[in-house]
Design a protein around this nucleic acid. Structure first.
Ligand SMILES: [Mn+2]
Ligand SMILES: [Mn+2]
Length: 301
DNA sequence: GACCGGT
DNA sequence: ACCGGTCAACGCAAT
DNA sequence: ATTGCG
């Protein structure tokens, strides 16, 4: 484990960012401090930033570490620095507008990490066309966890992911896959932004319904846990306006400080669980394989 | 985590 | 200068 | 209208 960053002011892309409480233990079981998390986000920023750029973000913050109180933050606080860009999103049902933070560079990323942001959650559309997602995420969630180890709950998730891949290949798509860093998997496909969230979600729901009717022993579309029990949950609700997904390389609030990591399909076949990659080993891996999800956020690729 | 008002 | 209190989300769809 | 859910 590399040393974490220390408290004090650092300059990033010409911005001064003050780091505080860097010795605070954020992950007690793994002995990982807030300074370690900030160091990780700085090191991973070249790979992470393209996945955040121009997307409204939600922050999942743990100011006292992962065992303590946490909260989601959509609306930028008044005290956020003026150089941190925001984008206003209307929430008609809630009769309000939230100014979502945007992360353009390492300074913004590290400022928000210093607020105790462990997990960044990103929109699936970009601010220049917010109503049309440019990314399709197929969210494969694990069976009810009671009595299951990470490994046991992950096997049906992997089997489901391969079945979904076959369906998408038959439709002419070549999905990528990544760990979520919790217990599940995400498949990702680029979209051309010709369809709205509702249109994409309707098509996705049809695909999920078809597959779960073919393998009702393995998968379920039921939101209620009691209805799906031991079965994998095919979650189409991620593809909704205002919904967010954990992007590649973000840190998850698990005991081991796992991260969401793109993997090859070949690797997935032998992957034990979704928490293999952590802030402690991610850098070594991406140094050798690069960003397997870069084509999803690289124009023209 | 940071701000604010009261002591 | 140092507290203590306060704030920091939301929509889908099943029921 | 409520609420489980992520
Ligand atoms: Mn998921
Ligand atoms: Mn989900």
């Amino acid at each position: 484990m590399l040393d974490g960053l220390s408290s004090g002011e650092i300059e990033l892309v010409g911005r001064k960012v003050r780091l505080t409480h860097t010795d605070r233990i954020y992950f007690p079981e793994a002995g990982i401090t807030k300074g370690h998390i900030i160091r990780y986000y700085l090191d991973i920023s070249p790979l992470l930033l393209p996945h955040l750029r121009d997307r409204p973000l939600n922050l999942e913050r743990f100011p006292e570490g992962v065992g303590a109180e946490s909260f989601y933050q959509k609306n930028a606080s008044a005290f956020f620095p003026s150089w941190l860009r925001t984008f206003s999103v209307d929430y008609p049902r809630a009769h309000k507008t939230n100014r979502h933070v945007l992360v353009d560079d390492a300074a913004g990323l590290i400022y928000l990490a210093n607020l105790g942001t462990i997990t960044f959650h990103a929109f699936l559309s970009r601010i220049d066309d917010l109503t049309h997602p440019d990314l399709l995420i197929l969210d494969v969630d694990p069976p009810d966890l009671a009595g299951l180890t990470r490994e046991e709950s992950f096997k049906p998730v992997v089997e489901t992911a391969f079945l979904l891949r076959e369906e998408l290949l038959a439709l002419g798509m070549a999905p990528r896959v990544k760990t979520t860093g919790k217990r599940g998997l995400h498949l990702g496909v680029s979209l051309d932004r010709r369809s709205t969230y509702n249109e994409v979600r309707t098509a996705l729901t049809e695909l999920f319904t078809r597959l779960s009717e073919r393998r009702p022993d393995l998968m379920s579309r039921a939101v209620r846990k009691e209805k799906r029990r031991h079965r994998v949950y095919l979650d189409a609700l991620r593809m909704a306006m205002g919904a967010t997904v954990a992007p590649p390389y973000t840190v998850r609030a698990t005991a081991v400080a796992s991260i969401s990591m793109p993997v090859t399909w070949e690797e997935l076949a032998t992957l034990e669980h979704s928490q293999v990659y952590t802030v402690a080993n991610a850098l070594a891996r991406v140094t050798s394989v690069g960003d397997l999800w870069a084509p999803l956020v690289t124009p023209g690729a």
